[in-house]
Design a protein around this nucleic acid. Sequence first.
DNA 1: AATGAATGAGCGTTCATTCAT
DNA 2: TATGAATGAACGCTCATTCAT
Lengths: 190, 190, 190, 190
Amino acid sequence: MPKVVDSELYRKELLHKCFDLLAEKGYANVTTRQISKEIGISTGALYHYFPSKKILFEQLVENMSQQDEAMLRAATQGANTLPERIAALGEFLIEHEDYFVKQAVIWIDFCQHTDLHEILNNSVFQQVDEQYQQAITHVLGLSNPKVARFIWTLINGVLIEQIGSDSLTFVEQIDFLVNMLTAYFEKYGI
Amino acid sequence: MPKVVDSELYRKELLHKCFDLLAEKGYANVTTRQISKEIGISTGALYHYFPSKKILFEQLVENMSQQDEAMLRAATQGANTLPERIAALGEFLIEHEDYFVKQAVIWIDFCQHTDLHEILNNSVFQQVDEQYQQAITHVLGLSNPKVARFIWTLINGVLIEQIGSDSLTFVEQIDFLVNMLTAYFEKYGI
Amino acid sequence: MPKVVDSELYRKELLHKCFDLLAEKGYANVTTRQISKEIGISTGALYHYFPSKKILFEQLVENMSQQDEAMLRAATQGANTLPERIAALGEFLIEHEDYFVKQAVIWIDFCQHTDLHEILNNSVFQQVDEQYQQAITHVLGLSNPKVARFIWTLINGVLIEQIGSDSLTFVEQIDFLVNMLTAYFEKYGI
Amino acid sequence: MPKVVDSELYRKELLHKCFDLLAEKGYANVTTRQISKEIGISTGALYHYFPSKKILFEQLVENMSQQDEAMLRAATQGANTLPERIAALGEFLIEHEDYFVKQAVIWIDFCQHTDLHEILNNSVFQQVDEQYQQAITHVLGLSNPKVARFIWTLINGVLIEQIGSDSLTFVEQIDFLVNMLTAYFEKYGI
DNA sequence: AATGAATGAGCGTTCATTCAT
DNA sequence: TATGAATGAACGCTCATTCAT
């Protein structure tokens, strides 16, 4: 019997273990040696589970986004009216601030260190993009998916702002965002 | 005038020459050889003017932000009502899309490659932050500077979205943003 | 029969299974994983039968040379005159071109990855050398064993030429060789 | 003024310095670190002069073959009749035995560690092949270039035999070869 | 002031070998 | 016996930085 029984499960565990490190340092600033050390295996073993640093990263992103969607839908289940749903979305983000900020960091960093052309043709990223858009469309009950995409853009702006500035707290920013969205939908409809 | 002034001017010229390259490739993806080549000097000369790659990058960021405020104020001078001012801000951003996207890339990249602690204590960044906030406050005639800060955050979100995605055009995103701001101010006042 | 015999047989079977792979890729370009996969066992099992990659390789070389002599003698049995015998040798080589080219590749490769000193003192190699010399001496009915050795050298030259060049076909080269040997023996006698 | 004045000359000097090492160990068995150490520069400097290990090797081969042709033509200049020319070729090979054996080792090794397809399409190797063929054609005054190619094949066989065997000396083998060629041309003409 | 050759630590990755199961 | 996950030294190569000229 092999040492690791369920290697698929173990792989996910490894991804989970290096999420914080990747978020803190960024893709290009973390070496495979650091990753190996962080998750407590040798460099060889890392390459046993992931064919390359890039693929490790892609699987991390894929893993992340799968969790998010389920979490988001669960968190906004009880909300019925649009203002309630917007508020629920805001609370959800505030609750998971740390996680989402890290995710935004990782995302941006990866985009920076990859050919634009390659990003746009990478099915993993297309899928993940689509997923977030659909999740927001569904959660807020929107009819125009472009609005969902735009909202996700704004959320990312707020998340990224948290990296390099302390002028407004995340809660303040999200509050503004919630109010703005509410005002927008009151005026223009869903 | 003593030599120092010339040298200072020359340094700014060098920074200006490598802005596009840094913006296009990102800090970690550009080598000092590439920078040297781009600005037409030897690696040795580069190190004569900038003690390290990092410091070159910092000075670039510092340099950048000094130009923007004046540009923005000039662009929105003719607008009198709030909706007009918001629209003028939107048009201004669309007109300079390329420049602002590049600037956002460089900015984010810089934050990633610098200790969070260091960023927050770095007076350059505090100053720059402050500048953008004041510019927007003034241009839109806002009473709450936090709203200005938040708007700048949203703008950055839209700019960054342009790096790694083609789902919505910059113009579409800015249109959404203009409408949203208009709706917000109609409901909540300035 | 005790277990040892079965194990010995199995080992030869394993060697036989990886002959083509080693010949095609060469010692240094084949990994133990590839060998394991090719012969259908795990890397662990491979190391159970062969203490190291090098020893596997040595045993392969040893194994190979044992088959050839009998083959060669059989192939030239019907030829009576010297020109007939030379022609029969040529035909035999052409018939088994693939096998002999592969063997030459493996042989050279092995020599490259082993200390010269070690090769010359290795009884396996001395024995194999001796065998080829005797086979050719016998097949052509030569009186001078050095001539046999030299002919084997020339044959190897032609075999090796097939690795990295397409200027002359194997058949063309062997034809030249047959004519040259015939002319030589006509002039100098056996 | 740069440290190395004539970098083209220096590159040739570096190639010359690592010839023995490559010949002794073979292409795949020598690391770039070993090469650097042998020629007394850092790994970085090695890559300053040669873009890759492979290109270093190709340039070495190219360099070698250029010397050979001139040497060979010079050595056989005085010989007028065909037997004299063959004898001069033999003496030339014996005189430079060490050099040619090393060259044959390097050549074979490289072919082993490179895709056959790639070798055949590599212009450097095609050129070098052609050069040897032409040199022999010219030196012996042959009319059929295929014969020249075949003779070069035989010479390589003899050279390679020197790597892994001590049964016949190089002189003995070359003597046989000279006699055989003489007999061949006496019977079949040039 | 300016050049670009030189350095060497460090990168992502590989692979012969070991060992817990 | 047999498995394949795990190891870690070593690979080809890069690049911020230094320094002789």
